[in-house]
Each structure stands twice: as C-alpha cells, then as structure tokens.
Design a protein around this nucleic acid. Structure first.
Lengths: 230, 230
DNA sequence: CCAAAAGTGTTATGCTTACACCCATGC
DNA sequence: GCATGGGTGTAAGCATAACACTTTTGG
C-alpha cells in the first residue's frame, strides 16, 4: 500500500504544561478563538507539520504560548478515539512539560494564532475543557504523581539552588499529602543526588537554610517516596 | 486551520507481540514482501484506517497475523522521527501484546497482505530489522521488564491454572536472573492475588504441584519484585 | 530405591515510620 | 526577646535476603 491511497487521520500534539505557582499545581490553558469549541478552554496544541518531529512540534507549541524553550518534556500518551474531534479523525500525541519556578517568572503569556487568551489554572479550579482534554489532563496528573514518587522529575520545578524545605513543599503539593520533615530529609540526602553549595539563603527572618543543587539526571528512576509521613 | 490544508504525516500501528516458548522470550516478526525493506524482517503493523481507533488497528494487525483476538494489549510509545520511513513522513504508534501459553498453541501463523513469512524469534537471536524497529523493540523489552517488577502483567503469559514454579520460571526468563524459590513464593502469596484451586497437576514424575489461579486485575500495580534472590 | 521437582521456616539486616526539641536569624 | 522556619536522632516495626532439608510422585 502506497502512502495516501486511503483517507488518513490527522495528527496533532497537545501539551500539558505544569508549573507550581502560589503553592498550587497549575496548568496552562488557552482559550480557543475558532470552531470547534470557540470560546472554550483547551490544552495548547496544534497540527504536526510534515517537516518536524513530534517532540519538535511539542516544543514549538510550548514556545508559541510561553516564549520559553528549555523545559522538561516527556511524551505522555497518544489518544486516537474516533469521535474525539468533531472536525474529523484526529489523533493527538500528548506531551507534558514541567516549568521551573525560575522560568515561570520570565514567561510572558501571549495569545497566538487561533487563541484569544492564555492563562494558568489551578488544578483545583479547572474550567470545562474542549475535546477529550479533561481525560488527557487527568491522565497527565496521574503520571506526574507517579513520576514524583519514583523519579527525580521534581527537580525540574526548582531553581538551580534550592532548600530542602522548598523541595519538600513541592512534593507535598503534587502528591497532595503532608510529609514528615526528618524522614523526608533523611531519604533525599541518602540518595546521593544532592550536593550542598555551602551557601545559605539570605535575608530570611529566621535561621538561614542551606542551599543545595541537584547532581543527578532529571527523570532518573530512584524510588524516592515510599510513604513518608502522615 | 482546517483539516487537510497542509501535507499530513501518515499514521501506522506497529505491534510487538511477545510470548514465552521453549523457555525463551520470543517476539513475532514478519518478512516484508514489498519495498521498502523487501525481504527483511519487521514488526507486524500497518496503516491506521480512518474508521478505526488505534487500539482497534493494533487488534486487527494482531488478528491478521495470528488469528487470535483476546490478549493483553497496551500502548507503548509513539515514534515520530522525520526519517524513520523512506517513503515519507510516517508516525507509528507502538503497542505491545502478551500471548498466553494456552493461546500460543492455538495460533496458526499466516502470511497476510505484503507479508511473505511470519515467525517467532528468540530475543537472543534477532534478525536485522526494518525501519527503526530495533529501537522500538528495545524500548518494548525495557517496558516489559519494568511491568514484570511492578505489576501483574506476568499472568497474561500463563494459562488459567498454573503452578508457582511456572510463575517463577517466567519471571526468571523475562528478568533474566535467578530468583530464590522460598522468597518468591512467600512474596507472591502475601500479595493476596492468587487462589489455590485444590487441584494438583497430574502425571508428573515427581511430587505433584498445586495449581493456582490469578484473582487480581492484569496490569495492576503491586510492586512484586524488590530483588528476590541471587 | 532412585530421580525429579515441590514444598516449607528461621534468622540477620536494612529500611520505614513515628515522634519533639534546640538553633539562627530579623525585627 | 519573640516569632519564624531550619535543622537534627533514636527506637520500634516491618520487609527483604540468605540459606537446606523433607516430601511426593513415576518409573
């Protein structure tokens, strides 16, 4: 069978961009300016061009909405149900991206083609979503939690230098449960993936905390959390 | 942007069909009867039709090559590099399937359209593969091992009734390491996912082993193996 | 009675959990 | 000197890991 003998599905990339702002897990959504779902919120995404790989397409979408380029990016799953797009047969490859607190501040959100608005939404206050994006987002959240428990992705949310309390905080937010401070520190330090800079965080009105850097590879499997705490 | 305004990538499904035959992990490959890679071995697969979901496409391919329908099937990853198919831009969604030893015997391998031969290959003696199928297969193997350690997929290789030694054997084959018999049994039985049928395997020239059935859900996460054994 | 695989328990070790007080700084 | 978060250790309980002999059948 040669290519193009038969009608072919179209292919899009949708990207789930997570960040931690104001101590909440947030996701970037765009307001659609075209049918279908005009005026509704959706995950950023678009058609894959013939001359770009899937990952390049995901990076392009990320860049178009946020202006940033270097982030943790990982393929999530490919959704290929028959009825997911009213325009016709569209298969979408989901990616998820994690934005560090450093980058978050640099970002200028900007509407792009077919998009009238771009906003961060707390995962606890999501609007109604277009297509099957609610399903995709739920899946992404599940994967994110899993990645936190078993790998080092957490560090992609942090700046280069961070305190152990900051690290614990993002774990508590993403896993949505409290962790025991002593056990958390013991476990993290025992993994041998952190190095202390001998600096301390300045200008805090309490005992200044030690700053650490991450020396492992982001996304590496390490089984960080068993239960730890309440 | 309306659909079809721009040249679109094509979409295929490739399926990695694993089984355990002759105490070896094997994979089903087909010999291509058309260019590109005519005469070379490849993973079974083909274009996704406009009126079938990705999973349906994978099941169809599976059925065409083996005649069977009900198996453990899971989406693996989507490969979308620019140069992976010399015919043009083709994105492929990989699936992996696990065939039980019961089904293995029923299977009549049959060549289908564009395929001149179909055969099981031991993972230790693979032929040269077409496209980027070596990469896809390597990824599938990694995922399979992971799934064995953390989930109950192993049971999809077994018949309904099986002995603990059979179960241990498939773990040893897939993980490629020896396990301690007593610890393995203790761990597996402690999970509460097996029930003894009170039957024993007959006509063996040694003490007849007890037959068990699996009562959990295939693929469920249970952290089966920590290390267990040598 | 021999061969072959099934079945079974104990001990040592390491990881996980629960838990409370002193420390260093800014104001 | 007080408020704020930073930083630290120990004991109990649980899971893992190492290890060898007896049992039941067929031939």
């Amino acid at each position: 069978m040669a290519l193009k003998d038969y009608p072919q599905p179209s292919v899009t990339v949708d990207i789930i961009i997570f960040s931690l702002k104001e101590k909440k897990l947030q996701v970037l959504l765009v307001k659609r300016d075209k049918e279908p779902f005009k005026g509704k919120w959706a995950l950023p995404g678009g058609f894959v061009r013939i001359d770009e790989s899937l990952e390049e397409a995901a990076k392009r979408e990320l860049h178009e909405e946020t202006g940033i380029k270097e982030v943790y990016l990982e393929q999530l799953y490919t959704f290929g149900g028959l009825k997911r797009d009213p325009r016709g047969r569209v298969i979408t490859v989901g990616y998820f991206a994690l934005i560090s607190s450093e980058d978050i501040e640099k970002i200028k959100l900007r509407a792009s083609a077919d998009v009238s608005d771009v906003r961060w939404f707390s995962m606890q206050k999501l609007p109604e979503l277009s297509f099957d994006h609610d399903k995709i987002l739920a899946y992404a959240l599940k994967r994110l939690k899993w990645k936190f428990e078993y790998t080092t992705v957490a560090f992609s949310f942090l700046p280069k230098k961070f305190t152990l309390t900051q690290l614990q905080e993002i774990y508590e937010i993403v896993l949505n449960k409290e962790l025991d401070k002593r056990n958390f520190r013991k476990k993290i330090l025992s993994l041998g993936i952190l190095k202390t800079t001998k600096e301390k965080k300045k200008d805090v009105s309490h005992r200044p905390p030690e700053l650490y850097t991450f020396t492992g590879r982001i996304g590496e499997i390490v089984e960080i959390i068993s239960k730890i705490g309440s």
